[in-house]
Computed example of a mutant assay.
Amino acid sequence: MGGLTEDPDFLATTFVVIDFETTTPAGYPAQPIEVAALALRYEAGAWKETGRSQSLIRPPTFAPVTPADTAQTGLTPEQLQQAPSPAEALGALDRRLTAGTPYLLVAQHAATEAGVIHNQAEHCPTLARTDFLDTIPLAKHLIPGLPNYKLDTLLAHFGIQQPADRHRAYADVDVTAQVLLRLISAANENAGLGDLAALVKIAGRTAKLNMPTQTGLFDI
């Protein structure tokens, strides 16, 4: 391995791969119906799993699971009737983050996951202040020339088998984590990506709650 995995900031960081399945009601932001997360650390020359979490989430009445949602995810309204509420599911996940530990959330097309978390920030304040690493710009930088950078395309490129339950949160987290590890391996051989700061510059996404507040031009 090269410089990236010897960088103290990289070694201190826990990478939490996260994925939501959602329903998208008209006039409202996407509402989570399932979440999964997998925490990884690079230690002593190898990746180590430090935690995993998965939960169904009961959507609000204004965001019912539709036949299209069921066709994509396999989840039905009946399965979610007794599931934890967003406050319960995301609150439980939020409490698993340890104060003082550097984290980066990781997602394929991180804007989607970042938006869901931001809209649920009252239930998961620590998650909502955790920045993201997006596998799409990282893959574009490291593997130029692919026809697109969808998850299925990256799986095919790396020879990662598609899971039978693709579009369920944990299956997608698992294969996204496999993509991440291959991208980190490629980044480790790239002289321009010698530390975590360089990685974040290319593929980082700042959580909305961490962005500076812009005040008006005039204070009245």
Results as ranks from 00 to 15, higher is better:
48 K>P: 01
189 E>Y: 00
132 F>M: 03
148 N>Q: 12
13 T>A: 00
207 A>S: 15
57 I>N: 05
115 G>Q: 04
153 T>A: 12
191 A>D: 05
161 Q>P: 12
23 T>H: 07
164 A>W: 05
205 R>E: 14
18 I>K: 08
30 A>G: 03
127 L>K: 07
24 T>P: 01
147 P>Q: 12
49 E>G: 02
131 D>H: 13
171 A>D: 07
171 A>F: 06
57 I>W: 07
86 P>N: 07
144 P>I: 03
163 P>I: 11
54 Q>Y: 12
35 V>A: 00
173 V>S: 04
64 P>S: 01
53 S>Y: 15
130 T>W: 04
183 L>E: 08
54 Q>F: 09
196 L>M: 07
166 R>G: 00
57 I>R: 08
80 L>W: 13
96 R>D: 01
48 K>E: 14
129 R>S: 05
116 V>A: 02
210 N>P: 14
144 P>K: 02
75 L>T: 08
49 E>W: 13
111 A>P: 08
31 Q>Y: 01
187 A>H: 06
86 P>R: 09
37 A>C: 07
105 L>W: 14
211 M>L: 15
92 A>V: 04
4 L>E: 13
143 I>C: 06
37 A>Q: 09
13 T>E: 08
77 P>L: 09
161 Q>M: 09
71 A>I: 08
113 E>A: 04
110 A>W: 03
194 G>Q: 12
131 D>L: 09
117 I>P: 07
75 L>P: 11
134 D>G: 10
172 D>V: 02
200 V>P: 08
38 L>T: 00
147 P>M: 09
203 A>G: 03
36 A>S: 14
10 F>T: 14
109 H>Y: 11
7 D>F: 08
83 A>H: 10
214 Q>T: 15
172 D>Q: 04
51 G>N: 09
34 E>I: 09
56 L>C: 05
217 L>K: 12
87 A>R: 15
198 A>Q: 15
148 N>P: 13
147 P>W: 09
58 R>D: 09
108 Q>D: 14
75 L>W: 05
162 Q>W: 02
166 R>F: 14
75 L>D: 06
102 P>S: 01
75 L>Q: 10
217 L>P: 11
189 E>F: 00
88 E>A: 10
53 S>R: 15
106 V>P: 01
133 L>P: 12
1 M>T: 14
207 A>K: 10
45 G>W: 06
88 E>W: 00
170 Y>W: 14
28 Y>M: 14
74 G>Q: 09
204 G>Y: 05
132 F>E: 03
66 T>G: 03
180 L>V: 07
38 L>H: 06
116 V>H: 06
126 T>W: 10
57 I>H: 06
114 A>T: 05
147 P>V: 13
19 D>A: 12
77 P>I: 08
32 P>D: 04
1 M>D: 13
91 G>T: 02
